[in-house]
Lab assay of single mutants.
Amino acid sequence: MPSETPQAEVGPTGCPHRSGPHSAKGSLEKGSPEDKEAKEPLWIRPDAPSRCTWQLGRPASESPHHHTAPAKSPKILPDILKKIGDTPMVRINKIGKKFGLKCELLAKCEFFNAGGSVKDRISLRMIEDAERDGTLKPGDTIIEPTSGNTGIGLALAAAVRGYRCIIVMPEKMSSEKVDVLRALGAEIVRTPTNARFDSPESHVGVAWRLKNEIPNSHILDQYRNASNPLAHYDTTADEILQQCDGKLDMLVASVGTGGTITGIARKLKEKCPGCRIIGVDPEGSILAEPEELNQTEQTTYEVEGIGYDFIPTVLDRTVVDKWFKSNDEEAFTFARMLIAQEGLLCGGSAGSTVAVAVKAAQELQEGQRCVVILPDSVRNYMTKFLSDRWMLQKGFLKEEDLTEKKPWWWHLRVQELGLSAPLTVLPTITCGHTIEILREKGFDQAPVVDEAGVILGMVTLGNMLSSLLAGKVQPSDQVGKVIYKQFKQIRLTDTLGRLSHILEMDHFALVV
């Protein structure tokens, strides 16, 4: 994948999101292997301009796509893939009243899908469409860049269908997702969380590099694949309309690839034109409109599966009536509230959605109805927002919020430890010299600072030695090549209790 991002070429006709291997024109390309080798690009942008032909009021008969309808489940399912879809609609009884809503608040519980998330729908649909058009064949390999849930859905379907599955996901995604993927037989590649989507090191860039190296491999490409919004247009939206008897006044959905909100909203605009569509985008993402909503100094966020630093091709923002931004604290607070007060075992993005819903639905009156999409299960986040310690460490809970008995030293300040200034190293000294210094002084790690004293990161003896043994660096290389740029900081005025929580999850903390 090139470091400079080429513009994806656009073909003359058809839909841009065809499933299957992508040609340089962004659509299915038939021909000899030699032709494909000559024409197939190194990668295709996940934010390529959409060429979708959908228009409100256009006859369904003019759609270029294969459409399906929700099917009634048999008493005995032939395999677990038949437990994807037909998820329950559940009334939220307490939270709406707590925040003064007059309307009825309903939750579409997508964590009841077989793999635990709304992404099971698009995973199965992308595979079925690729099999139907002859792209996927027995023994082929599926590769997908994902925040985890699409990966789980694909790995689940691949396990049943017999495909090899490789999932490329950023490091910030939970260990629970990784464990589930491994249990399903998927191979996992992790990428830096802070890598831009168009960087060769991003999950998108690495996935395309693997595709170019592995024979008979395919990126189904949830960011561009029409099967993504079509899955929701054909099934999720129809289920909502049936469950609500066609009567709903507002739908609120958090947005990642945009397939969920695009597919549902398009069908609702056709069948229930008075329904307002509300999009939820986390602070630090750029999906919301108008652009002024996205202006923030924050560039990272903890909530998973929603928000991006690019506009995915499948996201149709014209069908969203209003956007709201959400933050991590309210997302996790509301997710825990949904679990504790409503018994809905949902993930953090569901918290984002409901946090926005109780604001947006203030305009609705008694007798009206708001539906929220709860995308995934708490299963993926047992060591994250479900953990009091994690919430404390991230600053989303305060010590006084917890009532468990603490040891005698818990409320003492870090400054009472009488710490001395640490050994520091410059980023320009060599790895070999740094190892000598650390061994001589008896230290395992040291902060790396520039000549102005600005902290650049941390270097550890173990990481340097393993990097040297693996051949990633040489003793003569500058130590700046092996620094940890993500590390926890703590102030002298913070409590030892807070430091204790940090050290339970990290090997060190830097006192500043």
Results as ranks from 00 to 15, higher is better:
148 G>T: 01
209 R>S: 11
141 T>L: 14
246 G>K: 09
149 N>Y: 01
47 D>G: 06
170 P>S: 04
177 K>F: 00
7 Q>S: 05
57 G>T: 10
119 K>M: 03
261 I>N: 01
57 G>D: 12
118 V>W: 05
131 E>S: 15
249 D>K: 15
140 D>K: 07
26 G>N: 10
123 S>T: 06
232 H>M: 03
156 L>G: 00
256 G>W: 00
133 D>I: 03
11 G>I: 02
99 F>L: 06
248 L>K: 05
218 H>D: 03
93 N>E: 03
214 I>G: 04
119 K>T: 04
235 T>Y: 14
92 I>N: 07
207 A>L: 00
266 R>G: 06
240 I>R: 00
98 K>H: 10
159 A>L: 05
244 C>M: 06
76 I>W: 07
185 G>K: 06
31 G>Y: 06
136 L>D: 00
74 P>Y: 02
171 E>Q: 09
37 E>L: 14
143 I>Q: 00
152 I>L: 03
94 K>F: 03
143 I>V: 04
233 Y>G: 00
135 T>F: 10
106 L>D: 03
231 A>H: 11
223 Y>C: 05
94 K>A: 10
13 T>K: 08
136 L>F: 08
110 E>G: 01
44 I>L: 08
9 E>F: 08
202 S>Q: 07
251 L>A: 08
24 A>R: 10
244 C>G: 03
23 S>H: 10
176 E>W: 00
229 P>G: 05
69 A>Q: 10
53 T>N: 06
242 Q>M: 13
198 D>Y: 05
151 G>E: 00
212 N>T: 14
35 D>R: 09
265 A>T: 14
8 A>K: 10
191 T>D: 04
201 E>A: 03
149 N>K: 02
228 N>Y: 02
65 H>I: 04
232 H>W: 03
74 P>I: 03
51 R>D: 08
155 A>N: 07
258 G>S: 01
144 E>W: 04
54 W>Q: 06
197 F>I: 14
175 S>D: 08
9 E>A: 14
212 N>L: 15
102 K>Y: 03
128 E>T: 09
14 G>N: 09
9 E>L: 03
62 E>C: 14
228 N>F: 01
270 E>V: 12
51 R>H: 08
245 D>I: 08
221 D>A: 02
188 I>L: 09
109 C>G: 04
270 E>S: 05
17 H>N: 09
221 D>V: 01
185 G>D: 10
147 S>C: 01
214 I>K: 02
19 S>W: 13
268 L>G: 00
31 G>M: 04
271 K>M: 11
58 R>A: 11
55 Q>I: 11
126 M>A: 08
4 E>S: 13
15 C>I: 12
135 T>Y: 13
111 F>R: 03
4 E>L: 09
40 E>C: 04
38 A>S: 13
130 A>I: 01
178 V>C: 07
95 I>H: 00
120 D>T: 05
153 G>C: 05
180 V>N: 00
17 H>V: 15
224 R>F: 01
69 A>V: 12
129 D>N: 13
230 L>G: 02
147 S>R: 01
102 K>F: 00
22 H>N: 14
83 K>R: 13
88 P>I: 04
14 G>H: 11
72 K>L: 12
40 E>G: 15
91 R>M: 06
132 R>E: 10
10 V>T: 10
90 V>G: 04
127 I>F: 11
232 H>Y: 07
113 N>E: 03
172 K>T: 05
64 P>R: 05
16 P>I: 12
26 G>E: 10
99 F>I: 15
59 P>Y: 04
255 V>N: 07
26 G>I: 04
179 D>V: 06
74 P>N: 11
12 P>A: 11
65 H>L: 00
53 T>P: 02
229 P>W: 05
214 I>Y: 06
90 V>W: 03
165 C>M: 06
212 N>K: 13
116 G>L: 06
154 L>H: 01
70 P>F: 05
67 H>M: 03
67 H>T: 08
203 H>F: 07
38 A>M: 06
144 E>S: 04
151 G>V: 00
68 T>A: 15
261 I>H: 05
252 V>L: 14
50 S>K: 08
20 G>Y: 02
214 I>N: 05
166 I>Y: 06
97 K>I: 15
272 C>W: 12
266 R>M: 06
12 P>D: 05
223 Y>T: 04
133 D>V: 11
8 A>N: 12
170 P>H: 00
183 A>C: 14
163 Y>G: 00
261 I>M: 15
232 H>E: 03
14 G>D: 13
68 T>W: 07
103 C>W: 05
79 D>L: 06
241 L>A: 13
